[in-house]
C-alpha cells in the first residue's frame, strides 16, 4: 500500500523540481504514535500523481503551512541521514 508523506517548501518551483533527484526533508504520515517523523531523503517527485499510480503520495505545504491542492507523487531513492549539515541559525546569519 502506498505511503503518504508531507513536505514543506519555500519555493515550489525551486524546491520541488520534477523528474530529477532532489534532497528533501519529508514527514512520514503513517498513522500511529510516530506520525510526522522526519526523514531526510533523496527522491524523485511528480506533480502528476495519476501518472505514477504505484508511487507514494506527497502532500505539499507552503513554508507557512498552507496546503497546496494537488497531491504529488514521490519515489524515495535513498535515505540521506537523520539531519542536515549546517550551522544553527544559518539562514539568518547569511542575511545579516
Amino acid at each position: 500500500m502506498a505511503k503518504e508523506y508531507e513536505v514543506f517548501v519555500e519555493d515550489l518551483a525551486r524546491d520541488l523540481p520534477e523528474g530529477r533527484e532532489v534532497e528533501l526533508t519529508v514527514k512520514d504520515l503513517s498513522p500511529g504514535p510516530r506520525k510526522y517523523e522526519n526523514r531526510v531523503v533523496r527522491a524523485i517527485v511528480s506533480r502528476r500523481a495519476d501518472q505514477w499510480p504505484d508511487a507514494d503520495r506527497l502532500r505539499v505545504r507552503s513554508w507557512t503551512g498552507v496546503l497546496y491542492p494537488e497531491t504529488w507523487a514521490i519515489r524515495i531513492v535513498a535515505e540521506v541521514g537523520e539531519l542536515v549539515p549546517g550551522t544553527p541559525h544559518g539562514e539568518t546569519l547569511r542575511v545579516l
Binding site: F8, T25, S62, W63, T64, G65, V84, P85, G86, G90
Partner: peptide, 19 residues
C-alpha cells in the same frame, strides 16, 4: 547539524515565519 523546523502558529496569533 540542523533539522527542518516549523512552521508553527506562534504567539502573535499568526503562523508568521516559515520552515
Amino acid at each position: 547539524q540542523v533539522g527542518q523546523e516549523g512552521p508553527f502558529g506562534e504567539f502573535p496569533a499568526y503562523r508568521t515565519e516559515g520552515i
